[in-house]
Nucleic acid binder design. Structure first.
Lengths: 233, 233, 233, 233
DNA sequence: GATGAATGAGTGTTCATTCAT
DNA sequence: GATGAATGAACACTCATTCAT
């Protein structure tokens, strides 16, 4: 019961902030910003509603912070990527890591995508994400140019969109129903990049022969919707 | 003195329904379902709030109807597509038409994408969209198989995701800042499909040399945010 | 299609008015005034919403007219009752007829009772019902006085309240579960009035041995609520 | 700086809950359930509309809680009553207490009666009230049987209805215009039960010679409606 | 006489935010 | 730092009433 030291307080602050942001990431991602209440975030985080306002000025700021933090976590990965000298290896890593992030940061991807859709109403987020995009596209273009690929800018946009689409469909189909690993290998092959090892073994065993109708049903336990099945070769 | 005839009423109902669905499509797409109020839809449609409930039982049903209607408009295009005998031409048309739809049905695409993100909570929509996906993927796979492409199923998923991603980025970047036409031509080239003519000339002149920082600013008239520019080669 | 004569129009008006008031009586009685919408009344009456406003200035006026009409139907019965010379026979008839009205005018009774409860907010109805009450109580008191009963005014109030209570409980328990006929005979006996014949045979065969828990369940077909049963002797 | 203690919070919650239920009791009783808005309850309770939903999940639940609470307050009185060994004294007390409750719990009686009228749509309330009714009727019947009264079940129903009717008329006429005390004494006399002392002297001095026309005007301060007076003998 | 599309105030309910403790 | 009761604006939805035909 002795008064806490500054360091202890700082620890506490950090921990509380973290637990709130975790809950917010989860809920904003799955239910959308407007579909998530502060009450729900507080409940999931196990804190009182009022506490959230000790750390964030508003719900909007909480969203921003969660998104910013998500990008911040990408930083070291990207830095590392850019240090790779060989452009072919750099592209291979870029593709592998992008796929890996889709799997490992699914909650962030979901939030990021849904944020994109309403971004015109969120100025600060808009700026932040624009800068990130700019940078990624520029680096990607440079890499592709170094590899001697024609129209490297167009190709950069294409790859970038492809991964945005893969993230979207991966979320919608669910991990079990979307052949992400095979797609990635297919992409690598197109660029003539051998896939030496799958960085995440958990997705590489995907079978894509399941009825697609099941893929939307995600984790929920209710009886799956039956739609006409298509034959799988 | 007589009450309105059945035809007059039918006419009136159709028009009102239309104007409400138009407003809903626009707003659901740009602000999301939860971010759009019935009040706002009514205001945009120029009708009283209560009238919406003469035509739709609930906000949720309005969303469904707007989405269903959007898919319904695709039907004839898809039918026509499937009648093409030559698989190469069929794929070419598939790619062209998909791109065209991104441009011409931007509002629907926006709604469709944002709906996907929270789809697990909307059973009827889920079923509808799952069936659509199934069908598209199956046809695409068949086409690719006929063309002798390896792993046609993986390729079908890849193409499908690519177009989902293109739709997403096209919306985010804005038509003027996203080189959709060039990307499409690039895709066609990869499949060895010559682009005989662009079906929509309005987008083919895109220059992609503009500062990307501007691309997020879309149509809004507020002063554009300045971010660091990247060099264009 | 020849233009209708004045008499025909008058017929039509009367019929429409009637059908609306019937529907209103039913719904106001079972769901309460505030629980009943004009829409619902129109639907039950099989007419358009707007038509109701051709005959009644407002929902409130419709309520009034329905209540007034209900009292009006009592008039001839009461007139006839008051013409009976013998006070004993007059009381017997009063009791019998009151019970009969509970059964035959259940819908009106329901409406009348629920109206009583919120009567302080309905001035015109208040006046009307007060006059009716005054008159009934006065006549009842006179009858009881003629019979030589002590405290005829108190007795009149008591009898009046008893029948209000019987009406209430009859509605709540439901015809099948409330031994109205036996109660009436019991009352008659107390006043030394032999019950020569039951005016409504349909209720006289009541068995009161059913579990009381069932009596609230009325006509609905859902599984009945189980409450502890009490033994019936 | 510390958060409020559990005890303080409990205190606050209890007080708020109480003030809301008080207001609801008053308004539901006088205006009916559908005629009472949450807004009105909040205003009368002196709290914000939203607060009500901190304590009750819905308007319907608020109604239930108010009714349940009303019955709960009867419990000890009934318990005490049932412990009386002498059936004559028990009946006397039953009658006295019933009358007393009409006076002291007028607001609850009003609510209870108006609830009865629409009870078929409220399952939980229905069950609760059915059980209460069952119990009262069973005990009343037992008491009457012990007293050697003929047809005790019919008599129990009769007495029960009588008090329902007295409650109804007491509310409608208003305390000053309804000779409840005299009626009770009249009832007691019929069962040969001497009224040793009136438990509530305030009503015993009622004069019933006032113009009945006034009796509906209750407490409201608006100019009273004049209806024809009837002579008092 | 009769219709039903249209209106907008009002309803029950939710929720971001504040604040006393 | 942390709590949760309290607020009130905003929401989805309902409904009495109007009116052109």
């Amino acid at each position: 019961m002795a008064p806490k030291t500054k360091e202890q307080l700082e620890e506490i602050r950090k921990a509380s902030r973290k637990v709130i942001m975790e809950a917010a990431l989860e809920l904003f991602g799955t239910r959308g910003y407007d579909g998530t209440s502060i009450e729900a975030i507080a409940r999931k985080a196990g804190v009182a509603k009022g506490l959230i306002y000790n750390y964030f000025r508003s719900k909007e700021e909480l969203l921003e912070q969660v998104v910013f933090e998500g990008f911040r976590e990408f930083e070291p990965v990207i830095e590392q990527l850019l240090e790779i000298g060989d452009p072919r290896e750099r592209l291979r890593q870029f593709i592998e890591i992008s796929a890996q992030l889709i799997v490992e940061k699914e909650r962030f991807y979901r939030l990021y995508t849904s944020t994109l859709l309403t971004i015109h109403t969120r100025k600060r987020l808009q700026k932040h994400i624009a800068e990130y995009f700019d940078r990624m596209l520029a680096e990607l273009e440079k890499t592709l140019a170094e590899m001697g690929i024609e129209h490297p800018e167009v190709e950069a946009y294409t790859l970038s969109s492809l991964f945005d689409g893969l993230g979207l469909d991966y979320m919608i189909f669910g991990a079990e129903n979307f052949p992400l690993r095979q797609i990635v290998e297919n992409i690598l092959k197109k660029y003539g990049l051998e896939d030496r090892e799958a960085p995440d073994g958990s997705t590489s065993g995907n079978h894509i022969s399941r009825a697609n109708a099941e893929r939307f049903n995600g984790n929920n336990t209710e009886p799956r919707i039956q739609t006409q099945q298509r034959g799988t070769p």
